[in-house]
Write a protein that binds this DNA or RNA. Sequence first.
RNA 1: GGCCGUUUAGCUCAGUUGGCUAGAGCGUCCGGUUUACAUCCGGGAGGUCGGAGGUUCGAGUCCUCCAGCGGCCACCA
Length: 811
Amino acid sequence: MVIPVDTGIFYLVLRYNMRHMEKRYTHSDHETRIYGLWEQSGAFAPRASKAAKPYCIIMPPANANDPLHVGHAMFVTIEDVLIRWRRMQGYSALWLPGADHAGIETQFVFEKTLKRRGQSRFDFDRDKLYQMIWDYVQENKGVVVEQMKKLGASADWSRFRFTLDEDIVKLVLDTFRQLHKDGLVYRDLKLVNYCTHCGTAFSDLEVKHIKKKAPLYYMKYGPFTVATVRPETKFGDTAVAVNPRDSRYKKWVGKTIEVTGLLGTFKMNVVADSSVDPEFGTGVLKVTPAHDHNDFEIWKRHQDIVPGPKQVIGFDGKLNELTGKYAGLSVKKAREVVADDLKEAGLLERVDPDYAHTIGVCYRCSTAIEPLPLPQFFLKVEPLTRKVLQALREKKVKVYGAGHEKVLVHWLATLKDWNIGRQIVWGIRMPIWYNVKGHEVRIAVSFIDKGGKQEMGTIDQLVNKRGYQINEIKERLQQIRVPIYEKEENTVPYVISVDEPKEDGVWFPETDTFDTWFSSAQWPYVTLMTNKKGDFKRFYPTDVMETGYDILPFWVMRMLMMGLYKTGKVPFKKVYLHGLIRDERGRKMSKSLGNIINPLDVTAKYGADALRMALVIRSTPGQDKNVGEGDIRAMRNLTNKIWNAARYVISQISHDQFLISKPETKKQDKDFLSTLYSVADAVTQQLENFRIGFAAEHLYNEFWHWFCDECIEKSKKGEISQWALVEGLVVFLKLLHPFVPFVTEAAYLQLGDVLSKEDKKKFWDSELLMSARWPRKRSPTSRSKPRKASPRKKTVALFHKLGVKSGQSSS
RNA sequence: GGCCGUUUAGCUCAGUUGGCUAGAGCGUCCGGUUUACAUCCGGGAGGUCGGAGGUUCGAGUCCUCCAGCGGCCACCA
């Protein structure tokens, strides 16, 4: 057979093969060179042949700023197993890699480095800060790619995409425009989950709920007593609510009461709302629409009686000027001070010191989340989730992963509208311009003046009182806050546009950026649309989306929503969710425990193959897995075993004039080959069913305990012929290759060096194992692995035949 | 409060649609270096598959209930 190979590769392969094989497999002698051979062979790119069926996996884009951790190693291994397997089966296999700008994560990390220099993000205008983070990311980008290569990832690096690539951004913005046109985007004032430490709003999904004990204060409230854990928000109260069926308070409903508090006496209306639980506390609720989600909803339901949000906590997490002498206190401090003052004023009836409840905290920094009123752009979610639910019902997408399909359905069924703006700089700026003309008194901005100092205020104050030019404000803008008013004539008009509108007016850009997930939700189609011509047509919908179950709602769900919206098709047909990797005792890996497995350290010590196999063997989708150094060492031993099995077979070839023409006569050979190929079929089947961990274990056992322990030993006694043994070795190298690509390739190359031209015709179908043909049953007549029927089984079968209930009789 | 997962050898876990005489790694005990591999080979001990019912010729596998562990969701102030 003539193999058309690039002569350079051929030369390298020749040079690579040294006749001598070391007694032990030393990964460091092979991995880098083998990866080089693969890359130069061009086999990472999908087969060009039109006849080859497409197979595509989009790689979850790693955070551009994130060094490799064990989670990466897991996804690299599983996806690489699938891609290598399908590639060997002859598919035109594309594994498309990329990186994510990871807005909040990256900006947060960058701000830490700023802090070390004694600076903060408030020292810079928008453009300057963006540029600084861009440069910072450029320094680190690419590191993770090099690290993934060390793990053996056979991705097509030539198709690598970054979420902030110009053409990707363009498509993401197009989608936004389209959503807006279709009425799926709206601007509204709602309470958002605001982290005062990170300085941005989050979506509901990014709020972590933790159980906590806190004092529950019972305070006098006009004719009532109300229970609250947040006395500091009382300055923002606008009404009092009771349950409509609560007979105790019926007479008060609709009345106006007088409440004397720390800042004087106020009038308030009493409303009846069924969300109030008569059993809780005193059954009376103070309504604080600006600082509590439930209260906000009560206001929405009773707008005629209940005044709207009165914000008393600022975005800095401190009480504002409406709180009189308490202004400037942090929420936490204010709570204590207010409680003390209430007590002193005789307004505190009693305190339940250990009230257990849950509070929302920032998933990033664990700061308590403040619900704050903020005008935001929202994505109307229901029309999108409906389509996903339908696709799931119609089985257009299937989820592999321990019950997570149900979790996904639950998410989709209960999802709330998505606030897609974030108050950070690092991301794709929302393409929105406000015409501030005539609204200068209503719009607050911050910017950096010529002296490099931050200035803030309404546009009116800055221009008319402090004498700044409107253009210099715009040029060095940090943030803009455009309020929403009930009255039409007070509402600030905006247009969707990337560039400043040409129309008359004074146009200020929105300073919010999109939630990172808004762009990554579009990842499958934007990466294919902006890549080589025809990729989208050929590879979309993709075959498998593989990722950790922890980002199912953040990413997978949203990709389905956006993919169906934009293309009318699901972005992927299968979802494989891997579990988290924990330490050998089942604990989460953390720096403080010192139990982190650093993939690069492990790779250096035991080899990439050992790490890959340790991660994947016996893993189950959706299920966490414990991995310790012992597991990795055991798999390093496997690589050595593979190497030595090959070494033995190869040594026999060179010693005993290996004869290809030897006919297939021995019965033992036939049995051996029959079993060999049923192992191959079983592994293939397991991979097709995404039983990857099981396939790996099965292979491990068959290779080690059957092929090595039994068959090689038999061959020493002449019970299995040499050529059959060589065939066995080649088949196992191929089957093992997706899991442990380096050592199998190294062994395959060694074998190729020893085989004669004639021999190669039989055993050799490619210069490189990674491009070789996946083993299949040689003839349809060969049976599956014969199993001895046990006496018990025979008996049972007989009973069955006779229609007799066996019961205990067989024992 | 709702949902999901899990419970199999000393430890960590596998175990397709029921067919098991229940496996692997690590650990442990005994024995082995005449050349594939001591990162190894041979052999052993160790499990009433969380508990109780049920379906079936047959249940680790399916159904019901109970219990422990873990996770996700939820506006009880």
